[in-house]
């Protein structure tokens, strides 16, 4: 519930063109099958622990921690959820602010598909992210896509929570 409110606040903040978006992980409480996972994975370098010192403006740390570098997808889906759009709007705002930055959008899948189909699905997810960033005014020449299919999971555990965290599009600064 708390996360949900934060998310709404984030959206409102964005609409108001506020410069600092408070929501950090790009995820919100999960409801329904296509909802994003609730928590950051324990296996990646957890960005949420860096609350004491504020990341330098324009740094990749700021992009990951304050903006949110990833969005999540439903099973076998590539359409962007409302949460995903919110995150990408923050990303676009940040990218407009730092026009020299270029990015690679990585598309990833969970382990519940066949390898080659997942490579194609990851490419589709990366492009869904790219297309939205372009619609928000980011120049196409700044955005590359790369699919890893099911080859680079971030969350371990063969369960719904881990699969949800692995079905992701990650915007990586080059």
């Amino acid at each position: 519930m708390r996360m949900k409110l934060l998310s709404l606040f984030a959206a409102a903040a964005l609409l108001a063109a506020c410069e600092t978006a408070p929501e950090t992980t790009g995820s919100s409480a999960g409801t329904g099958s296509t909802a994003a996972p609730a928590a950051a994975t324990t296996t990646t370098a957890a960005p949420a622990t860096m609350v004491s010192s504020k990341p330098a403006p324009g740094s990749s740390e700021e992009f990951v921690v304050d903006i949110g570098d990833r969005v999540y997808f439903g099973f076998d889906q590539y359409d962007l959820t409302a949460d995903a759009r919110t995150t990408l709007e923050r990303q676009a705002f940040w990218l407009r602010k730092y026009p020299s930055k270029t990015i690679t959008v990585e598309g990833h899948c969970d382990e519940r598909g066949t390898r080659e189909y997942n490579l194609a699905l990851g490419e589709r997810r990366a492009n869904a992210v790219k297309d939205y960033l372009l619609a928000l005014g980011i120049d196409g020449s700044r955005v590359k896509t790369l699919s890893y299919g099911k080859e680079r999971p971030v969350a371990f555990g063969s369960n719904e929570e881990a699969w949800g965290l692995n079905r992701r599009g990650v915007t990586a600064l080059n």
């Binding site: 590539y78 490579l119 194609a120 490419e123 589709r124 492009n127 869904a128 297309d131 790369l146 699919s147």
Partner: peptide
């Protein structure tokens, strides 16, 4: 221009069949 993947040889060995993904279409 995009990702090429899923290759297999043709039975006579003269060709490779593969997939190419671009703009979300494979």
């Amino acid at each position: 221009p995009g990702m090429s993947f899923a290759p297999r040889f043709s039975p006579d060995g003269n060709k490779v069949i593969m997939s190419m993904a671009k703009n979300g279409i494979t």
